[in-house]
Computed example of a mutant assay.
Amino acid sequence: MRWSADIGGTKARLALCGNGEIFPQTVRCFANHGGVHFRDTLGAYLESQSRPRRTDLIIAVTGPVRDDHALLPKRKLDD
């Protein structure tokens, strides 16, 4: 089971996939504001999916990655 995440400046979309396909019933969207950390978003998502076993994790972000941190557009530094 592959976990996938598309992280933008205003929302994060997460889904489970396998055999080259996204499982549509597993797609969920979460708001990215108010200091929400991706770790918490991922935890909430996995709880909603009964904590599936992972073989891979794919993360796409809209901003640059520097020093192992993604810098997201449309986010205030204090957000």
Rank of each mutant, 00 (worst) to 15 (best):
A44Q: 04
G9F: 00
T41M: 07
N32L: 05
G35E: 07
V61R: 00
D40V: 12
V27F: 06
G8P: 00
N32H: 09
C17T: 08
L46K: 03
F23T: 02
F23D: 07
G9N: 05
I7F: 00
W3L: 09
D6A: 11
D67A: 12
S50A: 13
T26S: 13
K76P: 05
V61T: 09
R51K: 14
A60G: 15
G8R: 02
R75H: 10
G63M: 03
A5N: 07
I58H: 14
L72W: 02
V36C: 05
Q49Y: 03
E21N: 15
L57N: 06
T10H: 10
I22K: 01
G8E: 02
D56R: 13
H33W: 12
T41W: 02
M1C: 14
R54S: 15
Q49L: 08
S50G: 11
D67F: 13
G35N: 09
C17D: 06
S4L: 12
H37M: 15
R53P: 04
L72H: 03
N19D: 13
D67N: 12
A44T: 06
R66Q: 13
A5D: 04
A70N: 02
W3K: 01
D79F: 04
E47H: 11
V65D: 05
P73M: 12
A5Y: 03
S4G: 15
D79P: 04
V36D: 01
R66Y: 10
L77Q: 13
V36T: 09
A44M: 08
G8K: 01
S4P: 02
A5S: 10
P52G: 05
L16W: 03
Y45C: 02
D67R: 09
S50E: 14
K11M: 04
F30W: 05
E21V: 11
R39W: 12
Y45Q: 00
R75N: 08
F38Y: 09
D67V: 09
I22H: 01
T62M: 07
S48F: 08
D56T: 11
Y45L: 03
G20I: 03
P24N: 10
R75K: 15
S50L: 10
R28E: 10
G43K: 11
L42P: 00
E21A: 15
A15G: 07
F23N: 04
I58F: 15
T55P: 03
L42K: 06
I59R: 00
G8F: 01
S48V: 09
H37A: 14
E47Q: 13
P64I: 08
R75V: 06
R66S: 10
L16K: 01
W3R: 02
E47I: 14
L46V: 07
Q25T: 13
T62W: 01
G34E: 08
